[in-house]
Amino acid sequence: MKQMLTPTKPARISAARVGIGGPVGSGKTALVERLIPALMARGIDIAVITNDLVTAEDAERIRRSGLIDPARVSAVEAGACPHTVIREDPTLNIEAADELERRFPGVELILLESGGDNLASTFSRDLTDFWMFVIDVGGGDDIPRKRGPGVIRSDVLVINKTDLAPYVGVDLDRMHREALAVRDNRPVLMTNCRRGEGIEAVVDIIEREVLFRA
C-alpha cells in the first residue's frame, strides 16, 4: 500500500482555456479559423477542441484547413446535450484539454468551440477561463434585447457577419448600442469573419484579458 500513501500531485495545468459559444450558424468555426493564424502570428501556441453536435464536421474542417497541425484539434461528442458538455458536465472537454496539454506541453491557449445552441448556453468556469458568445447579424437585431444568458454573461459578445446588415435590414449601430446596454457596457466586438474584419480586436482582448500580455 506504500504507493497509495504517497500520492503524486497532478500535473500543473498551464494553458488558458477560452470558450466560444453561440447559436448554430453564427460563425463560431469561421471565427476559430480566423483566430488560429492571428494568434499564431503573435507567437501564441494554441490547440483547438470542437464540440460537434451531430457530425465531426467542424473538427474536420479545422483539421483540413491547413492552418494548424491536425493533431492539435480534438473533437468531443456532446451526446445530444450541447449545453451539458460545456456547463453542467464539462468533464469530457476538460479531459480533452488535459490530453492536449500532455501531448503538447508548450501549448498556451486552448480554444473550445461549442456545438451551437439557442441563446441559453454558458460555459462552466471549471472548464474555461474566459468565454465568448457569437451571434450574427443575420439572426436579427433583436437578439441582444432577448437577453439570453450567453449574450448577457459572456466575457465578450461577438456580433458577426456585419457585412449582412444592409441586406437584412439591421441597424448595426443600434444593435451594438443595445448589446452594450444589456451587458452593462462589457465588451461587444463586431466581426466579419468572412473577410477577416474585426479579428485583431478579438485577439487583442484574448492577449490582454486571458494571457495577461500588455
Binding site: 468531443v76 456532446a78 451526446g79 446535450c81 458538455v85 453542467e88 458536465d89 468533464t91 469530457l92 479531459e95
Partner: peptide, 11 residues
Amino acid sequence: SAYPAGGFAFS
C-alpha cells in the same frame, strides 16, 4: 445521472 463524469455522451 447529473454526476459530472461525461456519461451522457456514451450510448
